[in-house]
Computed example of a mutant assay.
Amino acid sequence: MKERGWRRPFEDPTRIGDRVLVTLIDAGEYIATLPKKEHSAPEWQAAMQH
């Protein structure tokens, strides 16, 4: 059975520095740990909305 929701894997995992974001929850946790200035940037806000 395929994973659904926050644990569903991306078709193409994303590498940011030494981290690989494989699921929506990985991406959400990464964004949540960014410094406030970065976290508030329009591109990260857009990523969180989608």
Rank of each mutant, 00 (worst) to 15 (best):
Y30P: 00
K36P: 08
E3V: 04
A47K: 11
V20C: 12
E38W: 00
I31N: 02
T33A: 14
L34F: 06
P13G: 05
H39S: 09
P13W: 08
L34P: 01
K36W: 10
K37S: 10
P13I: 04
R7S: 14
F10S: 00
R19I: 04
T14R: 10
L24E: 11
W44H: 03
T23N: 08
P42H: 11
R15M: 11
I16R: 07
T14W: 12
Q49H: 09
Y30T: 02
I25Y: 06
T23K: 03
E38D: 10
V22G: 00
K37H: 10
R15E: 14
E38H: 01
P9A: 05
A41W: 03
A46V: 09
V20S: 08
V22Y: 07
E11G: 04
V20N: 05
Q49T: 06
A46W: 09
L34M: 10
V20A: 04
K36E: 15
R8Q: 11
E3G: 03
D26S: 10
P13N: 05
R8C: 11
T23L: 09
G5E: 07
D12I: 03
E3L: 15
K36T: 09
G5N: 08
M1R: 02
D18G: 00
P13Y: 03
T14S: 10
W44Y: 14
A47E: 13
I25G: 00
K37E: 11
I25Q: 14
A46G: 02
I16P: 01
Q49D: 13
Q49M: 10
E3C: 03
F10Q: 02
G28R: 04
F10R: 01
G17Y: 08
L21P: 02
R7K: 14
V22C: 11
I16L: 15
A32D: 12
K37G: 02
R15K: 15
E43P: 00
T33H: 14
F10G: 01
G5H: 05
L24S: 04
I25L: 14
I25K: 09
P42F: 12
D18W: 11
A46S: 12
R4T: 13
G28K: 08
R15V: 15
Q49S: 12
G5R: 07
A46E: 11
I16N: 03
D12W: 01
L24F: 10
W44K: 02
M1Q: 09
G28V: 01
M48E: 11
P42D: 11
W6E: 12
R19C: 07
R19P: 00
H50N: 12
G28M: 08
W6T: 05
T23A: 09
P42A: 14
I25E: 15
A32R: 08
T14N: 07
H39I: 01
W6A: 11
E38V: 00
H39Y: 13
L21Q: 01
I25D: 13
L34W: 06
D18L: 10
P35V: 09
L21S: 00
Q49K: 13
A32C: 06
T33P: 00
